[in-house]
Amino acid sequence: MPRLLVLGIGNSLLTDDGVGVFAAEALQKETWPENVTIMEGGTFTQDIFYLFEGYDRLLVLDVIHAGHAPGTIYRLTEEDLIQKDNQRLSIHDVDLIDSLKMAELRGKRPYLQVVGMEPQDITTWNIGLSEPCQEKFEKFLDVAREDIHKILQEMA
């Protein structure tokens, strides 16, 4: 059975940088099919290539800096990240692409998709989201759920 890893990355101590981690925590409380794993990846994205073993697809939840209003939600493919320098997943995207390459060297790697949110603040020590990101957080979760269900249909 094809498997999906949903990975929330970021630093939950730096305001909006934690949006992916907060989303993973919320989604972990829900019921998902046995071929879906939801995990918090923190900020150690280059060292997590071993986690990708056995997964066919990878959905990452993180912040994206693309110059739009805080709380803007994005859907990106792996190709988008590689080809578009103006859309960056905080500092985590370069490490994440490297981790995927390392997983490929070990044999198999999942195909990457991203659901991201434009942050307002990723420098203030604070547990919780800024007001604009908090206002859009439920929508962020809805988009993540939609993508999980769509990926499951594609893998069926």
Rank of each mutant, 00 (worst) to 15 (best):
A69D: 11
I127H: 01
D98R: 04
G116M: 06
V114D: 03
I82Q: 13
S130C: 05
I91C: 05
I97Q: 10
E79A: 13
K108T: 12
D85N: 14
S130Y: 01
I127N: 06
K108F: 15
Q83A: 12
A103E: 00
L89M: 15
C133D: 01
S90A: 14
Y74F: 15
N86C: 01
E104W: 02
C133P: 04
E78C: 04
S130Q: 07
R106V: 01
H68N: 09
D121H: 08
K84C: 08
D85H: 10
I127S: 03
E131S: 03
F137L: 03
R75C: 11
E135C: 00
L129H: 14
P132I: 08
G71W: 00
E135Y: 00
R75M: 07
Y111K: 04
D98T: 14
L129E: 13
I127P: 05
Y74P: 11
E79P: 00
L89V: 14
V114E: 01
L100F: 04
E131W: 04
E104Q: 11
L81Y: 11
M102W: 15
T124R: 03
G116N: 02
Q87H: 14
M102K: 12
H92V: 05
D95N: 13
T72G: 05
E135K: 11
Q83C: 10
L112G: 08
K136P: 01
S99A: 15
E79C: 06
K136D: 00
G107R: 02
Y74N: 07
L76A: 10
L112Y: 06
S130T: 01
E135M: 05
E79S: 06
E78P: 03
V94R: 09
D93I: 02
A69T: 12
I91L: 01
I82E: 15
M117G: 10
Y74H: 10
Q87R: 11
K84V: 13
L105Q: 05
G67L: 04
A69P: 05
Q87P: 08
E104C: 03
L89N: 04
D85G: 15
W125F: 12
M102G: 07
H92P: 11
I122H: 04
Y111V: 07
